[in-house]
Amino acid sequence: MTTLTAAPGTSTRDTSTGRVLARACAAEWTRLWTVKATWWFLAAAAVVMLGIGTIAGLEAAGDADPPQGDPAWAVSRISAMPAQFALLALVLLAVTSDYATGGIVPALQWTPRRTVLFVARALVTVGTATVAGVLLAAGSAVAAFTAARPLLRLPVDEGLDVLGTVAVVLAAGAALAVGLGFLLRNAAGGLVTVFLLMLLLPLLLPQFGYEWMTELALVLPGTGAAHLLLGEVPGMTTTSSSVVLAAWAVGAVALGWARLVRDDANR
């Protein structure tokens, strides 16, 4: 058995907040990748995005009237729509699993400055979801391009535009998920809420035919995401979509942060 290294440490060392945050981010990174759920959801997103890309490419190739030189990037926008939910679930579970397992207790023992913990977890999870989304969106287009060769093109400028849009949509959605996770502290509740806000309500509300419901749908984050990705939502512009998405993301993050900072750890 080893003995403890030395006599008890002496001074109360002061470490800059920047350094504490950097360490917290490193720890969050390890936290994220040492549980299976992260890998599963990432795999699900990859299957959806690369699968849709490949299928779209094969279909284009088999078309009786094959497209001549259309950009492959269109498929990235389409595949990002369903795949984003796997990445949002990844983010949400990364936040709420600490509440389900009680892991928030050691987490706050090791990083008791709660704003630091919040910022670190938000940066790492939102960053991971966004980067993964962008890489997979690029992969989706490349898969379509490869499967349809030589019918499709991969123009760089349009690629940057599409990947930028995917990044914005995923960053906003992931921030929403982080905020909801810290606010609700519950995986099931968080998943249902994300799904309602990002998919079901924007889709269903306009179907009822009441004007106020249609207008309500226009201020939901899912409508903003759908317009930015697919561009088919009447009554929305790029600006209004971005504003709606950002407002939801900021609002959820603020509420989640407030709950983490003010409330008891997990009682």
């Binding site: 720890a27 600490d98 397992t101």
Partner: peptide, 17 residues
């Protein structure tokens, strides 16, 4: 109060970081 899916070593690694 720990995540059951992590190994003990990884749990401690997170703490160390």
């Amino acid at each position: 109060s720990v995540h059951p899916g992590r190994s003990g070593r990884n749990h401690l690694r997170v703490a160390a970081r």
